[in-house]
Amino acid sequence: MIHKILYCLKSSFQNLRNNLFLSFITTSTITITFIICLAFFLIVLNLSVFKENWVDRLQIIVYFNDSANAATIDKTRSELSAMVEVETITFVSRKEAMVLLQQSLQGQDGILEGLTENPLPASLEIKLKQEYLSVDGVENFVAGISGNEALQDIEYGQKWLQRFLTIFEAFRITSLSLGVCLILFTYFIISNTIKLMIFSRREEIEIMKLVGATSLFIKFPFWIEGIIQGFVGAGIALLFLYCTVNLFLTNHLVSLNFFLGAGNFIFINFSIAGIVLVLGALIGLAGSLFSMNSIDEFNV
């Protein structure tokens, strides 16, 4: 049995060597395919992490009308506190808002000197409970309170959020459809290479059948072949992306990390590499598995 397996493996590598040019073309095509796929995947992955972080830190600020008196403010505050979504609520009076503004303008408070009256509205800073911290959750909450007469404005970075979500969705859909296309493409490339290899070895296969080789024994080297091509293609793609990002983007990575918050930038790690390699091998295996008809059709 061991001899048989060794013989099989030997002939898979012999196959690769005999069809070096073909293998080279196939593998580089797969590599390019995987690089494109992986790049998009990493972008989407990081954007989604960014989205999560952002939403996590999201605060909703409601500003009161200037006409709102203490009683109205109190009433609104307790109404809002009673809502299931709300975790904490902090009142910022007009005075406090002014103090905060002055603090943030340290040294430049001359700007405020000409003011005869405080233009800042009183506000409530609302933090939602974890389970409502999603884009939908926030928007539902905002829609629910926006009818309140006492409120002048509700602020939660909506413009940004909308724009970001549009970009994010575009990326997600593009990468998803690209991923599906490129997987099919890889499958197609591998399957055709295997078919060519079978064709170039048809005489040998014919003779193998004549001398009583089992179907499994004849096909096994081609399966290995497909697996190797998918695996190697995916592997080179990983290596290429890893090196490129590390060589050229290291400086930018730091700022990117800062931007995303708390070092959350996700790059190729062991589990991603593992998944990609397995995926490559699986596509390769599928590509060769379903190209075996021609072997069965050699009638000897």
């Binding site: 049995m1 001899h3 048989k4 003779i207 001398v211 009583g212 089992t214």
Partner: peptide
């Protein structure tokens, strides 16, 4: 040798 290799005969 091929004929024997495919049935896994020892070298």
């Amino acid at each position: 040798a091929f004929t024997l290799d495919i049935v896994g005969t020892q070298r």
